[in-house]
Design a binder for these strands. Structure first.
Lengths: 111, 111
DNA sequence: TCAAGAGTTGAAGATGTTTGCAAGTCATGT
DNA sequence: ACATGACTTGCAAACATCTTCAACTCTTGA
């Protein structure tokens, strides 16, 4: 009764689909961080950060360990780093042209 | 460019975070498809498929062109293929061991 | 011109996700 | 034992996404 592969993939990508979670993963892909260190880099409430860390933990993208008074997080699978790099490449390519004044007058389909 | 990079990344991943969209991208990464061909492969209402295609179009992951009576879609950036492959690798690794202790270990996921 | 097939769009209810507050746990220092 | 700093959790309001229906556009064939 395993989930179809394409659905597992979708879930996986959805997990990456949050600015704070992306930042966390990028910081962690440089080196391990304690929560208060992440907090110093990311503008977010502590409880919110904790929720996002919980999401990443649940999906096994990161692992946490208590070290004395603090909790340190690390990337669980090194491949995640590759994926973030892949994404960077695609984005550089797909450069979101936010606004093109010469573009045809299409209705504003803001998301 | 007005959007922080990590936010653009999050948006990008969120776009991939839907089962139908993943299937569309996988089918398109094999070859171009007309909408009715996609419809034959994916179990989804025509209008829903159209909505998902619109999402992929908006984010420039696919492009559409009318060809007589049908509309054909193709992958916009070839790198998307690489990304899907990266994801496949990670998933094979991270085999989601949700919280089902009775689950079979390392099931083979068909697609 | 009309009918039919192929797609798209708008709208709205159902579903999910995000955020921040209040309250709680844990470990260390006094 | 108590206070404090470092985190986590439960929860509800705010917000976003998904799905479907009905209505609409385009193109081809009769």
């Amino acid at each position: 009764m395993s989930v179809p592969l394409y659905q597992a993939k979708a879930e996986f990508f959805r997990t990456l689909g949050h600015p704070a979670r992306i930042r966390i993963l990028e910081l962690l892909s440089e080196r391990d961080h304690a929560v208060h260190e992440l907090l110093a880099q990311i503008t977010i409430e502590p409880s919110n950060l904790s929720q996002q860390l919980a999401v990443l933990r649940r999906t096994s993208l990161v692992v946490a360990r208590r070290e004395g008074g603090e909790v340190r997080y690390s990337i669980a699978a090194p491949e995640v780093r590759d994926l973030l790099i892949s994404a960077r490449r695609i984005l550089a390519d797909l450069v979101h042209v936010d606004e093109d004044p010469t573009a045809a007058p299409s209705p504003k389909t803001a998301r």
